[in-house]
């Protein structure tokens, strides 16, 4: 589809701009990759260009350090995402399809929460988790993370379900589907796009969560990625090569995730944005 008649100059300018921007946003990859193969001597002499020999051992060393963080983060992110979405889909079905007594009151209460800065109640949350014995536990952290993402997921999903043709649900009801069956057979397949987008966002959110694990997780072997890397850069005399390799490795799980779900993600964001 040609939108605008354009001259060759405009063409070059547009593509040129985008490539320059891409070069800048891809710069971190280059930095990580190049430095990850250096020992400190190579790094101090020629930091910005590839040097020989390549120090592959940096990568195995890095893996030994961050492997456990990555495992922790995967556990955290998967658990939090599953809890957040399972709860949100059920509730969104109710709010998107029905007007139950007291529903509106509860809904308004939830929306106010969107404005609440997470920081405002960090200390009481910390105390609560201590009292519930959830400190220093990845499961506890996952539950709290899921609760934090709950309102956003619910808000987006409700808008989607509300806009679905109600005939789908009515037809299922006549066919004898229970509420749960309507969720499974009607909502989930048809909101697949937005659900995957939310899942990705929720996963990435948990993957990047920092403050909460920073204050709640004590054992080094339970640290999720962000806190682990934060401690790592502060703790040692810096070995830049392994450090950069560790940074690079910590991006790999998301690379895998995005490789499979990029399409949904882009589509989901676009659909979501249209709904506003």
């Amino acid at each position: 589809m040609s939108r605008i008649s354009e001259g060759p100059v405009a063409r070059v300018l547009k593509h040129g701009y985008l490539w320059v921007m891409l070069a800048l946003v891809f710069m971190p990859f280059y930095v990580m990759l190049v430095i990850s193969f250096k020992d400190n001597a190579q790094f101090y002499n020629r930091p910005w260009v590839p040097t020989l020999p390549l120090h592959w051992e940096n990568w195995s060393e890095a893996w030994n350090t961050v492997g456990v963080y990555i495992a922790n983060s995967i556990f955290l992110a998967v658990t939090a995402t599953l809890i957040a979405l399972a709860a949100a889909i059920l509730a969104a079905y109710v709010f998107g399809r029905y007007r139950v007594p007291f529903g509106q009151l509860f809904w308004l209460g939830l929306i106010i929460l969107m404005l609440m800065p997470g920081v405002a109640n960090l200390i009481p949350l910390f105390n609560l988790m201590r009292n519930l014995n959830l400190l220093n536990s990845l499961v506890g952290l996952a539950i709290v993370t899921a609760a934090g993402g709950q309102v956003f997921c619910l808000y987006v999903l409700r808008n989607f379900i509300e806009d679905m043709p109600k005939e789908f649900f009515e037809c299922a009801r006549i066919d004898g589907a229970s509420h749960l069956q309507q969720v499974i057979h009607v909502v989930i397949p048809q909101c697949g796009g937005i659900i995957s987008a939310l899942a990705i966002m929720s996963f990435v959110g948990a993957w990047n969560s920092f403050i909460l694990p920073l204050i709640t997780i004590r054992d080094p072997e339970l640290l999720p990625l962000a806190v682990g890397l934060y401690r790592l850069q502060g703790a040692y005399v810096k070995q830049w090569g392994p450090l950069m390799a560790a940074y690079f490795i910590s991006a790999v799980p998301l690379v895998i995730l995005f490789a499979f779900t990029m399409r949904f993600f882009i589509r989901g964001i676009s659909e979501g944005a249209i709904k506003g």
């Binding site: 009515e170 037809c171 066919d175 397949p189």
Partner: peptide, 21 residues
Amino acid sequence: VLPKNRDIAMVFQNYALYPHM
């Protein structure tokens, strides 16, 4: 009586065919 127990079937204007099936 719940819709499912009324022994009726309905055809909707927009067909309401499940797109994923």
